[in-house]
Design a protein around this nucleic acid. Structure first.
Lengths: 334, 334
DNA sequence: CGGGGTCGTGCAATCGATTACCTGAACGGG
DNA sequence: CCCGTTCAGGTAATCGATTGCACGACCCCG
């Protein structure tokens, strides 16, 4: 297990370490015969190189870090998958961290990524303001792109979905279905995208003449469990609204389950919508009408923006809001 | 963005770099006054350290790599979350890679992790034999623990669930429900756990007098989509078995959806079981009876085994098969 | 045949932190 | 008051790969 180094290879191939390095990386021309000799020596010794040493010298690791609030949420894992895919095309690896929706942990992850000298960071920050300090610091240290959510007060690229447009789609769809009153179930409005969804909900409800009672706006967290609890609270509290707009699919799925358990028929008695269009949204009973996020595009754009900065091209921070679309399923069709 | 190094801190604090290093790491005693001075200097300069340089010198990174076949599958993401949790307690960070069920990509990830000098690797190998070479090589280079699945011919620790016992639970449960014939829908039997599940299915079916027709054993991949397709194939092909045993929950959920669409009532017309007990298994229609994997325990044990090896304690490779349990829901209750 | 250019290779500095070894001061006991 | 011990802190080697610079061989053209 004693690691084999470039010196060992050099010795065996009867050349200098410089030549070995050049032969293997192809950075500078080396005569074919020598390349062959070196390759053989490296193979015979099982030379694997030392990425750490290489990273130290070149001060780049060909690695980007990604920090997401949760890896239990299929929306984020989908995003991660696409990012990983996109990165592979530009020859980089992904270093994934979960901040578990904790700004403290998030700051720690960021510090760790910076210390590990990743070439850049893609982050979906936990909190609109509590995350600011750490994100700003990281953005000062190296290229950083925010996805899905962003914190205020940091000049960095951002790419996500147009949340207001998304809620416009949802609310107009509901209005078309004859909805006159609606509830909104969400996590706390402590990050940009959630906040924008809440604002969009209210704005478009007002515009379309859909009534919103204050007690029908329920804020908890992005989880199935919260969806269940919110459903119970909603059903227990007097007259039902015509529809429930959920800020993500996990909440909506929990809501659907609790409704079924309580004998409330969706969509006959109540319409329900979600957000993200995770794979499981098609499997619920009834299948969920939800906003489809263009995950692949978001990921590709994030990687593109990061590469741009990595290529040292100075440019004003970009804010890219992609158009969402609506996937209509049975949870809103009578 | 010019990084601040230990020399800068040393200069500002009027001490040597050695002292800075010791003051910040606490490796050797440094007078409180100097520690304070150094701390202040480091703070003022925003010193973040260089993990790469440190790693090179100490030849450890306090990082472990994890390679899973898919990060779209909630079973693996659940595992990853628990592993990350457990690692945090021992002061290490997780470097997550997805092999996307491709042995080639998996080998590449392993090479990359070794080059990055992670301290150890936790892997759920893609393929029982195609993964062997890469896994063996990696296991030679550094401590390695296999989880869930294992490859043949590598002496490494493994921790997972007792698949035979799991299928015993499933089949006995089905027998109790009066099932006389069953189908098995799975991915290809090209990895250890899937293979063991298939074998367990047959063994316990035979033992309990449950009939299994060859054409009712359908092998595809671990995905919702394959579950759907298998359902169609199964329903199209003459007389239905009494039950369908699925090798994971994704397949089972796809199966349930396709059954509902085809007007087959589960559990009245057909019983369906899954494997893993992912969060979404409780949300389907009907809720899914499935084998619960003790994810937290698997993760904790994997980390424990890895720490054992990292602590240089030589020991024979351990194979830890944890007991699964059965979560009974409506998909098998008449 | 000589001068300028190209090309392959080696030497040694370098990246930034850690640490083995050394130095000098302070201190305590005989 | 002297010598051995202790301890803080400095000097410089080290981890392994990359790369600027230099050197020698060879080629081409005038």
């Amino acid at each position: 297990m004693g690691r084999v180094t470039i010196r060992d290879v050099a010795e065996r191939a009867q050349v200098s370490t410089a030549t070995v390095s050049r032969a293997l990386s192809g950075a500078k021309p080396v005569s074919p015969a020598v390349v062959d000799q070196v390759r053989r020596a490296a193979d015979e010794l099982g030379y694997a190189g030392n990425g750490i040493a290489s990273a130290l010298r070149r001060s780049r690791t060909d690695t980007v870090g990604m920090v997401v609030p949760s890896i239990a949420n299929p929306f984020f894992t989908g995003l991660v998958e696409h990012v990983e895919h996109a990165l592979q095309d530009v020859g980089r690896q992904l270093f994934l961290c979960s901040s578990r929706s904790d700004p403290e942990l998030e700051a720690q992850r960021l510090r760790s990524l910076v210390a590990r000298q990743v070439d850049g960071i893609i982050i979906s920050p936990v909190h609109g303001s509590l995350s600011t300090t750490a994100v700003r610091w990281a953005a000062d240290e190296l290229p950083l792109v925010q996805v899905d959510r962003y914190v205020t007060g940091v000049d960095s690229d951002w790419v996500g979905v147009d949340d207001d447009a998304a809620l416009e789609l949802v609310m107009e769809h509901l209005a078309d279905r004859g909805v006159r009153s609606a509830a909104f179930v969400s996590s706390q409005l402590t990050n940009s995208s959630t906040e924008l969804r809440g604002a969009g909900f209210r704005r478009h409800a007002a515009r379309l003449g859909i009534a919103v009672r204050e007690r029908d706006v329920l804020l908890g967290e992005y989880s199935i469990e919260w969806g269940r609890q919110a459903a119970l609270a909603l059903l227990a509290a007097g007259p039902r609204p015509d529809a429930v707009v959920c800020a993500d699919d996990l909440i909506a799925l929990g809501m659907l389950q609790a409704c079924a358990a309580a004998g409330v028929d969706v969509p006959r008695d109540l319409l329900v919508t979600g957000f993200d269009d995770i794979p499981f949204a098609a499997l619920s009973h009834p299948p969920l009408t939800t906003v489809r996020q263009p995950q692949a595009e978001i990921a590709a754009e994030a990687v593109r923006l990061l590469s741009r900065v990595l290529g040292a091209q100075e440019a004003p921070p970009a804010r890219v809001a992609l158009r969402p679309s609506l996937t209509v399923r049975s949870s809103t069709s009578r």
